[in-house]
Design a protein around this nucleic acid. Structure first.
Length: 205
DNA sequence: CAAACGATCGGCT
DNA sequence: GCCGATCGTTTGC
């Protein structure tokens, strides 16, 4: 059920990003379980990918966990506000990661609503559509960076529940215009949710 | 030590 | 569609 180490150790991070569609991200944080079916991912790969924080294999305090072996969490603060959740992949010293950008809520939906909207009434389609929103809904925070998701006591992990993945849409990655030619690489993967949540809109392309 | 820069979101026009 | 928020990380002086 829980994805094994070998799934994350592979060196083809683009394939891993594609295969994470349909898998279930689960968190157990502050006594609350939340879970959702992954519907959008992006691959990031050092050393050749200019959009990757570890471009050129440069090691900094922030990006050090990207060089750890596959199965760790890499969570960083974006625009001073948003906590973006990634899964580290590859063997040790391969700085590869998959950004989880959207999911379809499956469990703990009421907890997600409270974390996201604090009681205000909004559409469930906004719960976890977008990487910042997803992290907020799932209770993911930069303090979880470096967590080994393969350990039994980890507060975050990914499961294969045998859910079917339908048609997969592919596009360039979002928000990486600064990455020159790498910005055009088709390393973003999307699929539809089974309950019409997190619907890709035309502006997503 | 100063300053620029985001793998985004939500409110407003 | 446009724009401001907001702050840790990184780099340059």
């Amino acid at each position: 059920m829980k994805l094994p180490r070998d799934f994350f150790l592979r060196s083809d991070v683009v394939a891993v990003a594609r295969e994470l569609l349909g898998m279930v991200l689960v968190t157990h944080i502050n006594g609350e379980i939340t879970a959702g079916r992954i519907t959008e991912t992006e691959a990031y790969r050092a050393p050749d990918d200019r959009a990757c924080h570890a471009f050129g294999n440069r090691r900094t305090e922030r990006t050090e966990v990207m060089f750890w072996q596959g199965g760790h969490a890499y969570v960083y603060l974006c625009y001073g506000i948003h906590h973006l959740f990634n899964v580290v992949t590859g063997v040790e010293d391969e700085a590869h990661a998959v950004l989880i950008r959207a999911l379809e809520p499956l469990e703990g939906v009421e907890v997600m609503r409270e974390r996201r909207f604090q009681g205000k009434m909004k559409s469930d389609a906004l719960l976890a559509h977008g990487p910042g929103a997803l992290a907020q809904a799932m209770g993911l925070h930069t303090r979880l960076t470096g967590t080994n998701m393969l350990l039994p006591e980890s507060p975050v992990w990914i499961e294969d529940r045998g859910l079917e993945t339908r048609e997969v849409l592919i596009s360039p990655r979002i928000g990486v215009d600064y990455a020159r030619e790498c910005a055009l690489w088709p390393w973003r993967f999307l699929t539809l949710g089974s309950r019409l949540l997190t619907i890709p809109s035309p502006k997503d392309f």
